[in-house]
């Protein structure tokens, strides 16, 4: 570590680090495309009321099952066509992004914070606390809870907070296991032992020394979980157990339009396509992040780059 600790140079260091991150993203074409797609989806979700050409629930029976604009009979006001009630598919896909992002973010934050805290405590304390907490996580991980989730939702009714809650209950374990494993490794590191010997208390140790080193794996896992969560939300909504009309969800759109597959494939195709591509993109960014934050992989990449730029003439 540098011993220059003036605030100005610290800010410069952070800027430099950030710049390097962006440059390495630009080098990986696939990850770049994936992050651009995610940015578009986030923007669409946030700006939905301004971007969507129609209100999402605007019914227009004279426009029912209008095909997409490029298919001859299509019109410019329904770019991706209209569904069986004459609602604009594009506008509904844009509004659907809102729900997916809202549920995804909330679950990842709730499950991530809770799971990481459990993992931190289990890994740091060890002993009986560790055994009990991890047995609990393992048991829940091995138990197929889907039918239990269906039972809970059917009993207390379906709303966005309920959906976030039940998905989070089934998401914390993965963070707990990840963080615990990393803490167990970190505990043996010299700098941690030095901090303990210097009289660093447990809270300060976790906050100042453990957590910063855990951020990269947690962030990667959060990306993967985000992808999984929006898939689960869409699936629950498809089954009629998730988001309810008049709210819009990609899964709900597919369910609503499935009987019109023959007359209007676009009503089913586009919401599912956007969902699938979003999930793929999140996975791609997560795997880029993992490679990026792994020093061993970094060395490998740097070596490969050297070979490419300097040639093998040496």
């Amino acid at each position: 570590m540098s011993d220059d600790s003036s605030p100005a140079s610290a800010a410069a260091r952070i800027r430099k680090k950030r710049w390097r991150l962006i440059r390495s993203l630009a080098e990986d074409k696939v990850a770049l495309a994936a992050s651009i797609f995610i940015a578009v989806i986030v923007l669409a979700g946030v700006l939905a009321p301004w971007l969507a050409p129609h209100p999402p629930s605007e019914v227009s029976l004279s426009d029912r099952l209008v095909p997409p604009v490029w298919s001859g009979d299509g019109t410019g006001s329904f770019v991706l066509g209209a569904d069986a009630l004459g609602r604009d598919v594009l506008s509904r896909v844009i509004y659907g992004a809102r729900v997916s992002l809202l549920v995804g973010f909330s679950v990842v934050i709730v499950a991530g914070v809770f799971g990481s805290a459990v993992g931190l405590v289990a890994g740091y304390r060890g002993g009986r606390v560790d055994t009990v907490l991890m047995r609990l996580a393992d048991a829940q991980l091995a138990f197929p809870g889907l039918l239990l989730v269906i039972l809970i939702i059917s009993v207390i009714g379906s709303s966005i907070p309920v959906i976030i809650g039940v998905i989070a209950i089934y998401g914390w374990m993965i963070f707990a296991r990840l963080v615990r494993g990393n803490v167990l490794q970190l505990r043996e590191e010299l700098f941690i032992r030095a901090a303990v010997m210097a009289g660093c208390g447990p809270l300060r140790l976790m906050r100042r020394h453990l957590l910063p080193n855990l951020m990269a794996p947690i962030l990667t896992q959060a990306m993967l979980e985000f992808a999984r969560v929006i898939l689960v939300e869409a699936s629950l909504s498809y089954l009629g157990l998730g988001i309810q009309s008049p709210n819009v969800s990609w899964g709900l759109m597919v369910a609503e339009n499935q009987t019109y597959l023959r007359e209007g494939w676009w009503t089913v195709f586009f919401p599912g396509l956007v969902l699938a591509v979003t999930v793929v993109a999140l996975n791609l960014v997560a795997s880029w992040l993992r490679v990026r934050s792994d020093p061993q992989q970094q060395q490998l990449l740097a070596a490969r780059r050297r070979v490419r730029t300097e040639g093998v003439s040496a």
């Binding site: 992808a227 898939l231 869409a234 699936s235 498809y238 899964g251 597919v254 369910a255 499935q258 597959l261 089913v268 195709f269 919401p271 599912g272 396509l273 969902l275 699938a276 999930v279 793929v280 996975n283 791609l284």
Partner: peptide, 14 residues
């Protein structure tokens, strides 16, 4: 990766 990311309800419909 694509297989795992595919929503089953969508793949089935298609």
């Amino acid at each position: 990766l694509f297989g795992l990311s595919m929503p089953q309800f969508w793949l089935g419909s298609m």
